[in-house]
Design a protein around this nucleic acid. Structure first.
Lengths: 189, 189
DNA sequence: TCATTTTCCTAAAAGCATTAGCCTTCTGTA
DNA sequence: TACAGAAGGCTAATGCTTTTAGGAAAATGA
């Protein structure tokens, strides 16, 4: 009986695909084992436990997302950069809903600090170079942008916006216009 | 052996408390049965299944939240109203993290349409009466506000904001200032 | 070639969800 | 007041999922 060739890497990747197919919280060690046509216990040589699997998928998603963001930001500034970064998040969530959900997975502090999550914050901050904001307002703005990106994507995907009325694409465009306006007219403290 | 006096109502309420204590996704039919010192199977006379329980908790949370919002909005307008509504969400999430998470639970379309979720949208819209926005911009603004409220609360609670730097309370205040400014200077389409 | 490590397996325990069928406790009506 | 029927809670059983322990085959490398 030849070996299946399991690897932590391969399992993580397959887990991410599974997440996109059935949802992040339906990702189960059992389902993953089935996908590799292997007994469940076999996975425990490569994964500490279920939580470990989820964590790895989350880290993968954060990396991918940060890579896409970095590429999108290259050579852009101002509203152009703002739009590009915002679209990276929205598009990623649409293409990979399970991975996007994974990226929201609560990591323990040390893991989070060592994750690509840090890069995300830096990139959002980079956008603000095109606007005129000094600390601590810059940090406030970074957090606001993060809130809007995440909140919008999350509500849109969760069906939080009535499926009627104006198109959500239109709202997205106007939201980015609004954010740009806001950053250019940031109120004095 | 006297009866335990189970009721769909009581189970839902206890489920909500349980959610606040251990997290919404740790809410399990078994845990609930334990809390009432009753056998698991007994709950199935009052709940269709696990999903049913979660749905009921979600509806309860949406109701409570809408009630709080309605009360907070009474007699307020403009930025005062904006702040009040925003604080309702944030405070509720802090006081009842499990319930807040439940309020994000994905409901099937019919259930959602019959839920208090509708009132939430109406109240956000009510805030905008204090600003000068006609349709379809008003809808865009409603969605933006929802995104910010949800996104901020969700990131803050998930530890998404570094625990250092400026205080998150400060960011919250500045975020509301910024939103007020934005609504008063909404960019032309 | 053979000792070692690695990979995968069988076995087993424990927890959760869900259904079926029973017995007892209420309730309401004659 | 009695008792028929409904409703509440129980036992039993099945089928997931997670996780640990220990064994056997396969790859590795000296």
């Amino acid at each position: 009986m030849p070996r299946a060739g399991l690897t932590t890497e391969r399992l993580t990747r397959a887990g991410a695909e599974l997440a996109d197919e059935v949802g992040f919280d339906q990702v189960t060690v059992s389902a993953l084992a089935r996908r590799f046509d292997v007994k469940v216990a076999s996975l425990y040589s490569h994964l500490r436990n279920s939580q470990d699997l989820r964590t790895r998928i989350a880290l993968l998603a954060l990396e991918e997302l940060a890579d896409r963001a970095a590429e999108a930001l290259a050579g852009r500034a101002g509203k152009d950069a703002l739009t590009a970064l915002a679209n990276v998040y929205r598009d990623y969530a649409r293409e990979h809903p399970g991975r996007y959900a994974a990226a929201q997975f609560r990591l323990d502090p040390e893991t989070a600090a060592a994750s690509a999550g840090v890069r995300h914050a830096q990139m959002t901050r980079a956008i603000l170079r095109g606007y005129d904001l000094a600390e601590p307002e810059q940090t406030h703005a970074v957090r606001l942008l993060g809130s809007v990106f995440h909140g919008y994507v999350s509500l849109e995907m969760g069906g939080g916006f009535s499926h009627s009325a104006p198109d959500t694409q239109e709202t997205w465009t106007r939201t980015l216009d609004a954010l740009d306006t806001l950053l250019r007219n940031w109120p004095a403290a």
